[in-house]
């Protein structure tokens, strides 16, 4: 408990997390507003459509999560931390928990914010969240944000440098996972096992967010939505375990 309080003080006593949080929310909610304003009879607004840009927020939150570790390495405060708390694993788990909880809260703010602003802009659209698919699509965003924050903390801990960690996360999440589908034949099969694809499957499986034919072809996932979430969680936590083992062993 004490360690959680320590990491909370650390996180909130500098400005950059606040900036990242504000950016994640305004960017995503702003995009949702833009989409809602441009929907029409051909492309009607729905709960799913209002959520289509939550990835934007997720990327920003992953940057924030990675920074929470890499700035500690950059400024040497990680050594001060390990002096105060020689149990490195506990200290880093506390940091991960604080960052993940914060990411989860932001995820919910982003999701319900996007939904709310869409509802305001098009009060006549069918925006009731009344199926389990729609609930998963909106409220599930917090879970995905939290888990991707865990993954980002793990990458930050392994790489230790801000530029490197952020580059890896951005290139991987934005480019690698979608471009790999372009490899003929096997590309799509690989994609069906990639973590962020599963995160997306959890959020959007069975929803009719996009009209038939729009967007990338649907993948044939090995799991249902909750299986996909579990798979995404396993990869994030697995990477964190590796990162903790490395941090424990190496010189601070």
């Amino acid at each position: 408990m004490t360690l959680l309080a320590v990491e909370r003080i650390k996180l909130f006593s500098t400005r950059s997390p606040w900036w990242c949080m504000a950016l994640a929310v305004t960017l995503t909610v702003g995009m949702a507003a833009l989409i809602a304003a441009n929907t029409n009879d051909e492309f009607p607004l729905s709960v799913g459509v209002s959520q289509s840009f939550s990835n934007f927020g997720m990327i920003v939150i992953m940057v924030m999560a990675a920074l929470a570790v890499t700035t500690e390495y950059r400024f040497g405060t990680i050594r001060a931390t390990f002096l105060a708390v020689p149990g490195r694993v506990q200290a880093l788990i506390a940091k991960t928990v604080v960052v993940a909880v914060l990411a989860g809260v932001i995820g919910e703010v982003v999701a319900f914010g996007s939904w709310g602003i869409s509802t305001l802009i098009k009060p006549n659209a069918d925006m009731a969240i009344n199926s389990s698919v729609e609930w998963r699509n909106v409220a599930g965003t917090g879970l995905v944000f939290a888990l991707s924050a865990v993954l980002a903390v793990a990458v930050g801990t392994l790489v230790r440098q801000t530029a490197g960690a952020v580059a890896i996360l951005l290139v991987y999440a934005l480019l690698v996972e979608s471009l790999i589908g372009l490899i003929p034949k096997i590309g799509v099969n690989i994609q069906e096992w990639m973590p962020f694809m599963h995160a997306n499957n959890f959020l959007t499986a069975d929803s009719a967010a996009l009209p038939e034919g729009a967007g990338p072809p649907r993948l044939d996932f090995p799991f249902g939505p909750w299986g996909s979430l579990a798979y995404f969680a396993a990869i994030s936590v697995g990477l964190l375990v590796v990162a903790l083992a490395v941090a424990k062993k190496r010189d601070a």
Partner: peptide, 14 residues
């Protein structure tokens, strides 16, 4: 070994 954007007191508080 301090964060440049953190106040002296916050640094000691954590």
């Amino acid at each position: 070994w301090v964060h440049p954007n953190r106040s002296a007191r916050s640094h000691l508080r954590w």
